[in-house]
Computed example of a mutant assay.
Amino acid sequence: MKVLLPPPPSRIGLDVSLAIVNIVLLLIFFFLATGQLLNPVDSEVDLAETRELPLDQLPSPILIVTERGNWELDGRVIDQDLLGVAIGDLPEPKTLHILMDGAAPASDLLELSARPELQEVALRLVTLHRRAAQ
């Protein structure tokens, strides 16, 4: 007499999807918590400042617009009305580098670039980076 045995039960595999979801949620909570600690909302950003300008390291010709609104072309103070005369002898193609204070309003730069004597001049903005004193 033959006895038929029931078929072997199929192996139940481990379901790792719940573990993966838990790990992902823990990572999300971790990054949310540490991101809030490292980047407080009320922190202030320190912008770069320029104290003294070493003219030998700056491109030429450079128009420096100071905090007080004075203009200097390659270290010489010029009147705003005489800008056309001052840049008249620039070599072709005419290129003028502009350095303004970082706290100056953008409208000052727009007004400067819209001047009629600068319409045929290529303008390039110059920025300086000052490392914090340690």
Results as ranks from 00 to 15, higher is better:
H129N: 09
V85N: 07
N39E: 02
V121M: 08
E44R: 12
L38D: 00
H97R: 09
W71P: 12
L55S: 01
V126E: 15
V16F: 15
E44H: 04
N22C: 10
A103I: 07
S60P: 00
E111Q: 06
L125P: 04
L47N: 01
P6C: 02
E52V: 11
D42K: 13
A133P: 03
P105H: 15
L47T: 03
D46Y: 01
L55R: 09
I62W: 02
R11A: 01
L53S: 02
I78H: 06
A106E: 12
G13P: 10
L58H: 00
L14Q: 10
L14D: 05
H97V: 08
P7Y: 06
A86G: 07
L128G: 08
E49C: 04
R115E: 10
E72K: 13
G35I: 05
H129D: 13
I20R: 03
L25E: 09
D79V: 10
P40W: 10
L4A: 13
A133F: 03
P9L: 13
P40G: 04
E52Y: 08
D42T: 14
L58K: 00
G35N: 11
Q134D: 12
S107R: 15
L14W: 08
L4T: 14
D56K: 13
R11D: 01
N39Q: 06
L63E: 03
G35S: 10
I78Y: 01
R115P: 01
P91S: 14
T95G: 03
V126H: 11
P6H: 10
E117N: 06
T34M: 08
N39Y: 06
W71Y: 15
A122K: 15
I20Y: 06
R130P: 05
F30Y: 08
R130C: 03
M1R: 08
L5G: 09
D108S: 13
L14Y: 07
F30I: 11
P93I: 09
L38R: 10
R76Y: 02
P93F: 07
D56C: 01
R115I: 07
P7I: 12
L118F: 09
A48I: 05
Q80A: 15
D89R: 11
T34E: 09
A114E: 11
Q80D: 11
L118I: 12
D108I: 02
L37P: 00
D46W: 01
V3P: 03
H129T: 12
R130V: 06
A104D: 01
R51S: 05
M1L: 09
L32M: 09
D15N: 15
R51Q: 11
V16Y: 14
M1Q: 01
L110K: 10
L123A: 04
F31V: 15
A33S: 13
P116S: 14
V65R: 08
V85P: 03
I20N: 00
D42C: 04
S43R: 14
P61A: 05
V85S: 09
V16C: 07
A86L: 07
K94R: 15
L128V: 15
K2Q: 08
V24E: 04
I12W: 05
E92T: 12
A19C: 06
A122D: 13
A48N: 07
V41N: 07
E117I: 00
F30S: 11
S113P: 04
H129Q: 12
G84M: 06
G69R: 11
V77C: 01
